[in-house]
Simulated assay, not measured.
Amino acid sequence: MLVADRYRLHTVIGRGGMGEVWQAQDEVLGRPVAVKVLLNDVADASAEARFRLEAQTSARLNHPNVVGTLDFGTWDGRCFLVMELVDGGSLAAELTGGGPLRADRLAQVAQEAAEGLAAAHEKGIVHRDVKPGNLLSDRHGTIRIADFGIARFVDDPSAGLTTTGQIVGTGLYLAPERAIGTPASSASDMYSLGCVLYQLSVGHPPFEADSPTALLYQHVDAPPVPPHQRGAALPPAFETYLLGLLAKRPEDRPTARETADWFRSGAWRGAPEPLPPEEPGAGPEPHRQWDSGPGRHRGAQQPGGGPARRPNTAGHGPAPAASSASTGPSHLFSPSAQDTGWSTSVHRAASRRPAVRTSARRHFRVLAVLGGAALFVCALLLGMSMF
């Protein structure tokens, strides 16, 4: 079958509520493409408008983690949309075929999906239907976000082409604010991504119910069971961040850009945070893992009352042995110290001359006290004799 005298359809690779997706060949440019054709039984004015909106929305995005739009038109009375062909499958198929994902693969999915969502959110586009079936994985494992069929522009509430109060999207991944009728936002996409990551780590979505109403109530009121209690093997930092994506209040969730940056940094492994930048004029102090502020260097506690973080000696050789003097008022991190580098943590032998001076001062103080006491007794005796 040849569409618009250019795109030769081969096999159906997907079907949705509005159309079916074909693997096809662009006869003009000689490249494989995916062609989405509007179904005959839904080819009304509303469906065509939504189909056209999908083409316009995805065409505004040019990002390696978003499936690109190549062409749009009408053929045989039906709309068609030409997209990049992703040589692979969806994360839904990956979960079905191999079970829950490993932590490193899940972190890659989280980062790349968040990158694609960040690109959409920066353009004012909310996807509104983030789910495993709409996250595609090419043959290299790269994640590509597809199907902007019910996406909307944040600055155009009418772009969703739905009536007031109508809920669109897949209920298993629906954000709480959308369950109560609040318009979708970029934070809603992040909640949906959290549901997807939860399902990919555990094997099941965070909430399941026998009826749509009960499912919506769970999204609004029920706290998710921590993934490790359902058999997931995630680092604690990863699980904590994942539960943060499932926060009930939109303002409590991280943004797509924050999420992508966090997973890219490797913080999900629980690795130590990087050293803070040195203050202007301060000498190098390779032992301190946290800095700075009045009084922090003098005690042995972090802000909040916990024990001080152990120094990071990676790349600096073995750490010097700790002295028992560090448990008292410490001079090791005195802001007035002029030494830098290793001298901040290595005790030096005290010179003898200061020790002699200290001993002389002590003797003088003892003699002064004894002399004062003798004078007091003499004065007391003299007064009594005179009386």
Rank of each mutant, 00 (worst) to 15 (best):
R6D: 03
R8Y: 14
H10N: 05
V12H: 02
I13N: 05
E20Y: 05
V21H: 03
E27P: 05
K36F: 03
V37N: 04
L39S: 02
L39T: 09
D41P: 05
F51P: 08
F51T: 01
L53Y: 14
L53S: 15
E54C: 07
A55N: 08
N62W: 04
T69P: 00
L70K: 10
L70C: 13
F72E: 08
D76N: 10
C79T: 08
M83H: 04
D87V: 06
G89E: 14
S90D: 05
L91I: 03
A93F: 06
L95K: 00
L95S: 05
T96I: 12
P100C: 03
A103V: 01
D104G: 14
L106K: 07
L106N: 01
Q108S: 13
Q111S: 02
E112M: 00
A114F: 04
E115W: 02
A119S: 09
E122R: 14
V126E: 01
V130D: 00
L136W: 10
L136Q: 07
S137E: 10
R139N: 14
H140P: 13
H140Y: 12
H140C: 11
T142F: 03
I143W: 10
R144C: 05
D147I: 09
R152P: 06
F153W: 15
V154A: 09
V154W: 15
D156Y: 09
A159I: 13
T162V: 05
T163Q: 15
T164N: 06
T164Q: 07
G165E: 04
T170W: 06
Y173E: 07
A175I: 07
A175K: 06
I180Q: 00
I180R: 03
G181E: 08
P183I: 01
A187R: 01
S188R: 00
C195A: 02
C195M: 11
Y198D: 02
L200I: 08
V202Y: 04
P205N: 08
P206S: 01
D210A: 14
T213H: 14
A214K: 03
L215H: 04
Q229W: 12
Q229L: 15
G231H: 04
A233L: 05
T240P: 06
Y241A: 07
L242E: 04
R249Y: 01
E251G: 09
R253T: 05
P254W: 03
A256Q: 07
R257D: 03
W268P: 00
R269V: 07
G270R: 02
P272A: 02
E278I: 12
E279P: 10
P280E: 01
P280L: 04
P286R: 05
P286K: 11
R288L: 10
R288M: 11
Q289H: 09
W290P: 12
S292F: 15
G293F: 07
P294N: 14
H297K: 14
G299F: 04
P303H: 13
G304V: 12
A308E: 09
A308H: 12
A314K: 11
A319C: 11
A322S: 09
S323N: 01
S324N: 15
H331G: 12
L332F: 12
P335A: 08
Q338I: 08
G341D: 08
G341L: 10
T344I: 13
V356E: 10
S359T: 15
A360Y: 03
R362H: 13
R362P: 06
R362K: 15
H363A: 08
H363T: 13
L367H: 12
V369T: 09
L375Y: 13
L381P: 15
L382G: 13
M386T: 15
F387C: 11
